[in-house]
């Protein structure tokens, strides 16, 4: 029983990592209707920028704020420079673009900061949380930040003009243009926001997995799984999906013999496929109806 509780708690802690990343995935999906494979690398790069600023002596929160701005602007620049020209291109071209971006960012980060792992500070410390040694204050903080982000996103998409315009631009670009929304800039804004959320995810994840150019590889796959499980259109779903994937992964790894070690990553992929087959919109996503 103790093992069970411990694994669930550890799963929730890991789930928070996936949830953070899944939020960024959902954000970009809302804006461009695609999954961005370079999302993890962008987040990693932002985290390195934050680390570099701290090395230069900027205090944590200063570096945090500057990194958010840098990532937001960076996201918009990437969209304007790389993906706007591809706007009319087929999906496959976009996928190729994402993969190119992935490789470029990864190599540039490696070249600039090399591949040794770096310690990234946590604003929450890492002492035991509420006497439990299984969840540290950092992990609790991470869960807290994820939930705050979630609420902010919810308010943004539901109650602000820009948020509504963005949703409109993604789901019905033509109608949106007719009512005077600049859809092209909405997409750029979506990139900027996704990059900024990704940078928060990166800065929260780095204290746990350590900062290095490949730190997001595995995380992004689980983030995708979380987003798909929860529903690619629902930020709430993505967060719940993240926790579910984290806990599910740990329990399967612990209690189903043979699966535990070799098959942990395939579990995430199996989850993606199962959800897509059984409930394509995820647990919380809305059904997409297309007029033919």
């Amino acid at each position: 029983m103790e093992l069970f509780t411990n694994q669930v708690l550890a799963g929730i802690a890991t789930g928070a990592i996936y949830a953070c990343m899944a939020l960024a995935v959902v954000m970009i999906y809302q804006a461009i209707d695609h999954l961005n494979f370079a999302q993890g690398e962008m987040a990693m790069f932002s985290t390195f920028v934050a680390w570099q600023m701290m090395q230069w002596g900027i205090p944590y929160w200063g570096a945090f704020a500057l990194t958010l701005i840098f990532s937001f602007v960076g996201g918009i620049v990437i969209e304007r420079a790389l993906f706007k020209p591809l706007a009319k291109a087929p999906v496959l071209t976009h996928v190729a673009g994402f993969i190119a971006l992935f490789a470029i960012i990864n190599s540039v980060a490696g070249l600039t900061w090399d591949f040794t792992i770096k310690q990234f500070p946590s604003p929450f410390g890492s002492s035991p949380f509420l006497g439990s040694q299984l969840i540290s204050t950092h992990q609790a903080g991470m869960i807290g930040v994820t939930i705050i982000l979630l609420v902010l996103l919810f308010i943004f998409f539901r109650y602000t003009r820009v948020g509504l315009a963005m949703r409109a631009a993604a789901s019905m670009p033509e109608s949106a243009r007719l009512v005077g929304i600049n859809t092209s800039w909405m997409i750029a804004l979506g990139w900027g926001m996704a990059a900024a959320i990704g940078s928060i995810a990166g800065m929260l994840i780095a204290p746990v997995v350590f900062l290095e150019p490949n730190m997001m590889g595995g995380v992004l796959i689980y983030g995708f799984a979380a987003a798909v499980v929860g529903g690619l259109t629902s930020p709430l779903g993505a967060v719940i999906g993240g926790f579910l994937v984290g806990v599910f992964e740990n329990l399967v790894g612990t209690y189903i013999p043979g699966v535990g070690n070799e098959l942990k990553l395939p579990i995430a992929l199996a989850l993606i496929i199962t959800v897509l087959v059984v409930k394509p919109n995820g647990l919380f996503g809305r059904a997409i109806v297309k007029r033919v």
């Binding site: 550890a10 890991t14 746990v208 730190m215 689980y222 740990n250 790894g253």
Partner: peptide
Amino acid sequence: EVSEPTIDSHIVK
């Protein structure tokens, strides 16, 4: 596996 993001679960086990 080297692809695992964190290994916390293993350590708990």
